[in-house]
């Protein structure tokens, strides 16, 4: 009998195609993941628009837009995966896939594919919105673009791994949105998205500083705000290497956590 080979690349391509089709055909998922951050951006951006400046010449809305970019990275990855994987596990998709010769890694590559496409689309829409309506200035030079890229890559990796891991926490698919969304919303309040981070009570700052979102937002502020705005940071500096370090630690934690917790079957199925 001749040896027949299966192409890993073809399997991954098929998984990514299936993931993208499934995502973009689910209107609720698209609205929730891509529309909601955009609506918040326009809504709060308009409300905060004429309010005070964080430093002379830089209105708070720029601070807010940078934070919302961080929030949208988290929504596209952490929230999206924690909810959809929990639902797919409940519906039996994961168990079905596990019964085929598909390599396990192809499932996760499919998820990475959808997260990448969704987050890039989302960031593009948010940036366009920020530039068009709220006078957001794009990163001024290559170094600022590079930090933007670094925060995106490290942040989305950490949040993707945590989302995969967290999908095993809700008891079933139905309860997943109710467990995941509050975490994301609370983090946005204490990580420097809706409010200036240095102005929230210090005990909340400390909680926020444990999680990746705070550091992602801080890095994005470096990329999108004038250098003088760093006086509004807690330490008076951008702490770029600490941002990389904390996000790196979360990547390791997220990887270990998801390796430990990931299940292909729901709990009722043992």
């Amino acid at each position: 009998m001749s040896e027949l080979r299966v192409s890993f690349i073809a399997i991954c391509a098929a998984r990514i195609r299936a993931e993208l089709k499934s995502f973009f055909r689910q209107r609720e998922a698209v609205v929730f993941t891509m529309g909601f951050p955009l609506i918040l951006l326009v809504l709060f951006g308009s409300i905060f628009g004429s309010q005070d400046e964080i430093v002379p010449g830089t209105p708070f809305v720029n601070y807010f837009v940078a934070g919302m970019l961080g929030a949208s990275i988290m929504t596209s990855s952490f929230q999206n995966l924690a909810i959809t994987i929990a639902m797919e596990r409940d519906a039996g998709l994961l168990k079905r896939l596990r019964g085929t010769p598909m390599p396990k890694s192809a499932f996760f590559i499919g998820k990475i594919g959808v997260v990448t496409v969704v987050s890039v689309c989302s960031l593009f829409l948010m940036l366009a919105c920020g530039v068009l309506f709220f006078d957001l200035e794009l990163p001024v030079d290559a170094k600022h673009w590079a930090v933007f890229a670094m925060v995106y890559v490290l942040g989305i990796t950490a949040c993707t791994l945590c989302g995969i891991a967290f999908s095993s926490v809700p008891k079933n698919g139905q309860s997943a949105p109710a467990m995941v969304s509050p975490i994301a919303i609370v983090l946005q309040f204490i990580s420097g998205v809706f409010f200036v981070y240095s102005e929230v009570p210090s005990w909340l700052q400390n909680i926020g500083a444990v999680f990746p979102l705070k550091w992602m937002c801080q890095g994005l502020r470096y990329a999108f705000l004038p250098d003088g705005a760093k006086v509004r940071e807690v330490t008076g500096g951008w702490e770029l290497s600490r941002i990389a370090l904390v996000l790196g630690v979360w990547i390791v934690l997220g990887l270990l956590w998801s390796l430990r917790s990931f299940r292909w079957r729901n709990r009722a199925d043992g």
């Binding site: 027949l4 080979r5 299966v6 089709k21 055909r25 519906a91 998709l93 019964g99």
Partner: peptide, 27 residues
């Protein structure tokens, strides 16, 4: 393997689901 009652693959068409799974197999 044909498992008992399932409710996944809701967004893909019949052909899309079959084509995705076909890619996992050598023949």
């Amino acid at each position: 393997i044909v498992l008992q009652s399932t409710k996944d693959l809701t967004e893909l068409t019949v052909v899309e689901s079959l084509a995705t799974f076909a890619s996992f197999y050598p023949r």
